[in-house]
Simulated scan of single mutants.
Amino acid sequence: MKIEVQAFINQIQDQTYLTDEYELATPEPFTSAPLLAAIQPAIEKALEKQTLASFSATTTYHDEPVKVTLETGIVNLPLQYIKKVNQFFDEAAIVDVKLYLYVTSPWINRSGMRIDEIGTIETVAADSPAAWAKISELLDQDLLAVVAGSEAPKVVPEEQPAKKAPAKKKATTKKKATAKKKAPAKKATAKKTTTKKATTKKAAAKKTTTKKAATKKPAATKKTTKKAD
């Protein structure tokens, strides 16, 4: 089964594909069989009709949701991310439609989702028993990862050091601003001191010249009087 990328996008956006969701109690034991039994018949009918489809079975494990989805698509992204599909293909390209298995749970891994490619629709249709055996094996592995994740000790992230870092940066900025304000005050004081020194020197020079002229004139008058006698 092949499809044009733009035609695929249109069908998903217009919601003209087959879809349904089934809710189940937590399976005992926690294996793939009950979950696949709920969605396998619907997926097989969609593949026979060569129709795009997305079917899910949801349950819980240790009070957290677990969602198993079998979905047809052209890239390993859930249909909910349809807006990103044209980042991988040219819109006019003709591509294979594939079957994907998605397991969503906060226990399964850090991202909360596991994606497995089953194969092209032609491959699945050519050997249906082998395809479903592969799906069952992969899903059992994913469910074991859910169990292991639920039993792992919870790690509390230490976020306190990261919150204190911005406070240090603000304190440094304030100090720099204060230093810039003090610099202009020092320059103004230096200018006033220079002006006062220049005025004092000029005044002293004028007083010294006046005293020397007054002393010379009386001495000349006394010498002339003695010669006349």
Rank of each mutant, 00 (worst) to 15 (best):
L36S: 01
Q13M: 13
E48L: 13
D90M: 02
A177G: 09
T104R: 09
T31W: 00
G73I: 00
L138R: 04
T208Q: 12
A33V: 11
D14T: 12
P153E: 07
A130T: 05
L144M: 08
A92R: 04
Q160M: 11
A93F: 00
A33F: 09
K227H: 10
R110E: 15
Q6E: 06
G119E: 02
K49S: 06
T31G: 05
P129R: 04
I74R: 00
T51V: 12
E48N: 13
P166I: 05
T72Q: 03
K164H: 11
W132H: 04
P29F: 00
M113A: 04
I121V: 14
Y81W: 14
L36A: 00
A162T: 10
T58W: 13
S105K: 03
A46R: 02
D14I: 05
A203K: 14
Y17H: 07
A219E: 08
A214I: 14
A165G: 03
A38H: 02
G112N: 06
K211A: 13
E122N: 13
L143P: 03
K154T: 13
P106L: 03
K191I: 05
I9D: 00
I9V: 05
A37Y: 06
A188I: 15
P157R: 08
K196H: 08
T16W: 02
K196Q: 13
Q141N: 15
P166K: 07
M113N: 06
V75T: 09
E91T: 01
I135C: 02
A131T: 03
K2G: 04
V85L: 04
V5Q: 03
F30C: 02
V124D: 01
A167K: 12
T209S: 06
V146G: 00
A125F: 14
L139A: 00
A185G: 03
K186T: 12
T200Q: 14
D63G: 03
Y61H: 07
S128M: 13
K211C: 09
A228D: 10
P78L: 00
W132N: 03
Y81I: 04
A214H: 09
P184I: 12
K211R: 10
K164R: 12
T199M: 05
A133R: 12
V68G: 01
A145D: 11
M113W: 10
S136R: 05
V147T: 07
